[in-house]
Design a protein around this nucleic acid. Structure first.
Lengths: 153, 153
DNA sequence: GATGTCACCGAACGTTGTTCGGCAGAGCGT
DNA sequence: ACGCTCTGCCGAACAACGTTCGGTGACATC
């Protein structure tokens, strides 16, 4: 993970669909070198994938929420089961397994408030391991798609 | 946003770096048609960008947390200012503006617990508009990078 | 039934991805 | 110092690709 790798990663974070030649030119190496570096970054698991960022409304997810969930008992079996359940629901776009008051925070998207409510009542609250959950509507979601590497120690 | 558009979007969510010809073959149209559709999806704002998904540890973000923040007064000026402030911090990877008890939830990544603590104490708690915040460590973060479109009404 | 419109196709051309042989420099043991 | 190996990089070559453009068929309108 030297300076060249970082520069390639930065470019791919910024725009994952630009050509290898463009990236090579920007970071100052030959296309073949850049391609090999990219392949290695992928192989080493530094690059986990390339994904299009889609407007939520286009996927019928105009309303988004964060749902904090507490489950009991706090056994591995229950936690893993709920995690898999939540991740499998189509409305769920992310599952956070947490330390602290809440055991999970799940990021949910639905067409409108009505569908969100239906999801909470019909899907989520059916699970018997849930002892409580709290839903907060998201007004805005500023995501940083190209987070810079933090300085090491 | 017909069936063909959805299929193209699905492929680009799954792997944004596959060739236009591959996508065209998978969705069953000519490459030129696929390219034109993709261009229009981009132009209409359905596709917002293409980004590489990078392992947090490679960016010195081995420890992640969600921080719930309350600010006062709840004026537009204060909200916008804090939002811009939070989004500008390098440790912050996402800012959620919320309805409910918390005004913001910010997604933070740091090298380790010590750096996370330093961030909270030195950066966040400096802001005078903050009247309280609560930090929860993230154990796991299962993200769905290819959320399916939800059925419309 | 003639006309206009629209989405799609397929061919063509310049550009790109990908592979491979070779070269230069670093590190190392003698 | 010398030769050796290893590693990372380069540049050329060929197959594959992106991108443009004229043409074609389907469909709606009048």
């Amino acid at each position: 993970m030297d300076e060249l790798d970082s520069a390639i990663v930065r470019e791919l974070q910024r725009d994952a669909r630009q050509s290898n030649r463009d990236i090579a030119r920007k970071v100052g190496v030959a296309p073949s070198t850049c391609l090999e570096r990219t392949r290695l970054l992928r192989e080493r698991g530094v690059i986990r994938g390339y994904h299009a960022d889609i407007a939520p409304a286009a996927l019928n997810r105009g309303v988004q929420a964060l749902v904090s969930v507490q489950v009991r008992p706090l056994s591995r079996a229950v936690i893993d089961a709920f995690k898999a359940f939540a991740h499998g629901l189509p409305e769920v776009t992310a599952v956070f397994v947490m330390a602290g008051n809440d055991d999970f925070v799940i990021h949910v998207g639905a067409q409108d408030n009505e569908h969100l409510h239906a999801f909470l009542v019909d899907r989520l609250s059916q699970r018997k391991e849930i002892v409580g959950f709290r839903t907060s509507i998201i007004f805005q979601h500023l995501a940083k798609h190209d987070p810079a590497p933090l300085p090491g120690t």
